[in-house]
Design a protein around this nucleic acid. Structure first.
Lengths: 123, 123
DNA sequence: CCCACTGTACTGTGTGTTTTAATACGGTCA
DNA sequence: TGACCGTATTAAAACACACAGTACAGTGGG
């Protein structure tokens, strides 16, 4: 489900956050679907439960998941507020576009790339 | 010239790398212009020369600067190969676009953003 | 030639973050 | 009641970051 890379300089809890974000974005996890419990995932990944806990806490802060005390952790639903995360991503987007433009990547190439990633439709 | 933020969780050498990248991208530093020496910059920023050295070494790896032994460190020229850095940035670009799209940011908004950042011209 | 500058390399040390470990507590539900 | 859930806390090991000090080789002006 989640693949850890111990050679990566990125902390394990960040790798877990990235992993679940991608699973949610790709609709592998649907709204209100239950995530593995802290202890279960820690056991299957052979790492400490505290590390999972930290990843879940951060993802909840980003709006991607929510927890119900005593029941478990779940994927956030539709009417969620991702404002903070969205703002953060747009700032990164701007910086990357500016640098890519300096590196002679054509505007047209970026537009084509967006088209492919978003399915080529209207929105 | 470079502004450090000790409250930022980002390591100092990363802040220095980001700072010089932006100065080069914005043409504040021109091709073949000399950068401050390791010791001089370390002194003016009141940090350790080793930290500057690490930032310069990384920037050289990205293709943004080059060093001439005994003379100094300089901004890379025109016909440089930024292939690795470019590839890295395009991967980040794709990931951010995918997540923004999931967060209901419209394709049109991203295109407008690129237009503004690149000056609205053709390339 | 000398000296002051350049980048580079290395060892050691202190500090903070990351991760682990071991518990403990309260809520949920069959 | 017992087995599962998330959460909290404290302590210690492991690691990255930054600093301090020293050393060496190349460059170029006086």
């Amino acid at each position: 489900m989640i693949q850890l890379n111990y050679r990566d300089s990125k902390p394990i809890y960040e790798q877990i956050k990235d992993g679940f974000r991608k699973l949610i974005i790709s609709n592998t996890f649907l709204a209100d679907e239950k995530l593995p419990s802290v202890r279960e995932l820690a056991s299957s990944l052979a790492i400490n439960p505290n590390t999972i806990q930290r990843a879940y806490r951060d993802l909840e802060g980003e709006g991607y998941i929510y927890t119900v005390p005593g029941k478990g952790t779940f994927v956030a639903g539709d009417g969620e507020t991702y404002d903070a995360r969205q703002h953060e991503l747009l700032e990164e987007f701007d910086e990357i576009v500016e640098e890519l433009y300096f590196l002679s990547v054509k505007k047209k190439d970026l537009l084509e790339r967006i088209d492919i990633l978003t399915g080529g439709g209207e929105t």
